[in-house]
Computed example of a mutant assay.
Amino acid sequence: MDLQNCPGNLGPQMNTDISGTGVRVSFYLQTLFLSCLSARSGDLNEITGALYTLLATNTAMAVTALILGLKPQPEISFHDAIVVFYLLYISWVTVFFTLPACARFPDGNVKMLHFFSIVQSYTVFAFALALLITAKTFGRFPECNSKAVVVLFRPFSALTSGRIVCWVMTVFVVLVYTGILVKDHMPPTPKLVHQWIQKRVTKQVPATNSEIPVLSPDVPLPQQEPPQPQQQQQQTRGTGGAVPGIAAAGRIQYHARRLVQPRLEYDLQIAWNLVIEIAVVLILWGLTVMNTELLIQENRFQHVDGSSWQFGQVLPMFLVILPMCNLYNAFRDFGLRPQPAVY
């Protein structure tokens, strides 16, 4: 086995155009901004704009990784593909949990957005399956693939236990996503089939208009007896049957009562559910970014000669501008205050 391309414990050189610092920062910030934007924004256009940007980024990344990794002379290594897998996993999960936020806008038309999300999802799934199937020979320098590791709070081999975990996770996600997709797009149950199920299975058939009894106007309605007046019992105090509270001299005696001071409540105008949601997003996002950066550190990529900040890394940074501006506008308008209801 020729290990001259990854001597010692070092991995191959990183392809910075697909897994460099600029690309990773772009993915990190887009996912963070989109997650916070979906929780805070009251404008559908702000959310869909950031979603379209991330969908295009994910699809382009998956297609590029497939082409560069499976061509006769690959231009990315297996180590690069693992980094891409992590980045696509972060962004796909963000898109999956952000799309339902568009449902709170009843007048919004998001059919095209759902279509592009389906295309993006199966493109990402195709890349993940291709990487898992050809893991031992994938990419440039396949002799270095045995040294690759994956990280989930700790490193472990990518070709043994890591491959098994990724297989289980990928197959589970693909099946669940496909099942949800089929369920959402299935035609409604025909009326005759629904009635047959009610008769044969549930044995409950809703009453029709012909089965509801109709009272004749000649039939008198049953009369209800008027309620009997309750006997009021007066308790006398002392002699003479005096009414309590009235003294013998005719003066009214008022019972001393303690005035209850109203409890003052201060409304801080803070949407605590929003604060909790953003806190959870920050924690999960931080853990995912930490594992991705640990992955790069544990794979020990060789140093790249020359400047790594070229067009392939500078361009993704500009994709962060749109979601960042939308997030700024959303918090400028509402802050952490409760958002008004959308009708």
Rank of each mutant, 00 (worst) to 15 (best):
K191L: 06
D80V: 07
F153E: 07
P262W: 12
Q13P: 04
S91I: 02
E46D: 10
L54P: 02
P338F: 04
L175I: 15
F334I: 14
L259G: 12
M169Q: 10
Q261W: 10
P226E: 15
F141Y: 13
T137S: 13
E143K: 07
T160L: 09
S210E: 14
N58R: 09
N326Y: 07
Q120P: 00
L3E: 13
T59F: 00
I67M: 06
T189A: 13
M169K: 11
E46L: 00
I82K: 03
V193G: 03
Q120T: 15
R24V: 02
L70D: 00
E277H: 10
S210M: 12
L34E: 07
Q223E: 15
T208Q: 03
D333R: 11
D2V: 06
Q30S: 01
Q228S: 14
Q232R: 12
N329R: 15
V168E: 01
S216I: 02
K183V: 11
R24L: 06
Q253D: 12
S41D: 06
N58Q: 05
G11C: 01
F318V: 12
S77H: 02
Q223A: 14
P338G: 02
S77L: 01
N299Y: 03
P227W: 06
E277Q: 14
Q13F: 04
N273E: 10
L51Y: 00
N109E: 13
Q4K: 14
L44G: 14
F334G: 04
R300M: 07
E277N: 14
V176M: 14
A62I: 01
W272I: 11
I118M: 11
A271R: 04
Q4S: 15
